[in-house]
């Protein structure tokens, strides 16, 4: 209970600070949402009317107060660029991004975990060295570069999908999956490299522990020792990394969505910023902050379940 209270207060504090900072940043950076919407040749009366409507004539503090008041009621305002409620915009894009994230995460886990085990087991042999090199390179590769490479290879050469197009899963499930799979792979490769690096080290650390020798002395086979004893202990330090990876993917892989023209959170954010669409950006900042907070909370709770030595308070 006390844990929850403490956690809640820190959540509120974080959200407050995040919104204040974005408000101020938007005040400082050059650019004008009205010019972005009406064009440079709009006449003065029109501009003045829109300025009033958007309350841009009011001082910063008043605007923030109004905005936060509405946000608390669940109303994040209306996007200047799209003339649609911000919440609706985010919800639609969120469906796309969360699917992409889920696929990327599944790929990361089903490839990353077995690969870590193999690398740890054959540390100094060919496979181990090979995967070490892969993980080193994989971490250094930017995923947008992988994305461009994959668009070229699978899109233009192998014609697996049409670059620049996107088919939602609702329309055609197989096609939709296909359009999310390649960007998911581009996201997953560097993440797999990170997982392999950390999990391999954790497994190798655990393999030298006394309890592993005990497990062998009981007559367990090495795969049983790995699955029942080593892996669970090795996962503890990796959970934090996994949490960061999930938050990173869900927060919108900005560039990947741009490269594969996927209408997800990342593209929405970029559009919002380039149009100085502050209600939209403000809403998305809150959304991303909430995701990061939720995932951190989830990591804490998972620690509690995996490691009996850790109590939440």
């Amino acid at each position: 209970m006390r844990y929850l209270l403490r956690k809640m207060s820190s959540v509120i504090m974080t959200l407050f600070l995040v919104t204040v900072i974005t408000f101020i940043v938007f005040e400082i950076i050059p650019g004008d949402p009205i010019a972005a919407k009406l064009g440079i040749e709009a006449d003065k009366v029109q501009i003045e009317a829109l300025r009033k409507e958007l309350q841009l004539d009011q001082p910063l503090i008043v605007r923030y107060k109004d905005w936060i008041g509405n946000a608390l009621k669940g109303d994040l305002g209306i996007s200047i660029r799209f003339d649609e409620p911000v919440i609706n915009l985010i919800q639609i894009r969120m469906m796309v991004t969360s699917r992409l994230a889920l696929i990327a995460l599944v790929i990361t886990i089903i490839i990353g975990v077995p690969l870590s085990i193999i690398t740890a087991k054959y540390d100094n042999k060919g496979i181990g060295i090979g995967t070490s090199i892969f993980s080193q390179i994989g971490m250094a590769l930017p995923s947008f570069w992988l994305g461009i490479l994959m668009t070229y290879l699978f899109g233009l050469v192998l014609k697996q999908f049409i670059p620049g197009r996107y088919v939602p899963m609702e329309q055609n499930f197989v096609q939709g999956l296909n359009y999310l799979l390649y960007p998911a792979i581009a996201i997953a490769i560097p993440k797999i490299a990170v997982v392999v690096r950390y999990l391999r080290n954790a497994i190798m650390d655990q393999t030298n522990q006394d309890y592993v020798r005990t497990a062998y002395s009981k007559g367990l086979r090495s795969h049983q020792v790995m699955v029942r004893h080593i892996l669970r202990n090795a996962l503890i330090p990796v959970i934090t990394i996994m949490g960061m990876i999930i938050a990173d993917i869900l927060g919108g892989s900005l560039i990947i969505e741009q490269v594969f023209t996927i209408p997800g959170i990342g593209r929405l954010l970029i559009m919002g910023i380039s149009n100085r669409d502050f209600p939209l950006v403000q809403g998305m900042v809150i959304y991303i902050a909430l995701i990061v907070i939720a995932i951190n909370l989830l990591v804490d709770i998972m620690y509690h379940f995996i490691d009996p030595r850790i109590k939440l308070n």
Binding site: Q209, D210, Y211, R213, T214, A215, Y216, S217, K218, G219, L220, R221, R228, H229, R232, N233, I306, D307, P308, R309
Partner: peptide, 24 residues
Amino acid sequence: LYEIRGKDIAIIFQEPMTSLNPLM
């Protein structure tokens, strides 16, 4: 060998605190 380990020849180790799995 796996059969003999534990069933015919069992071991007690020096450090009971670290010789048991902390998560089990």
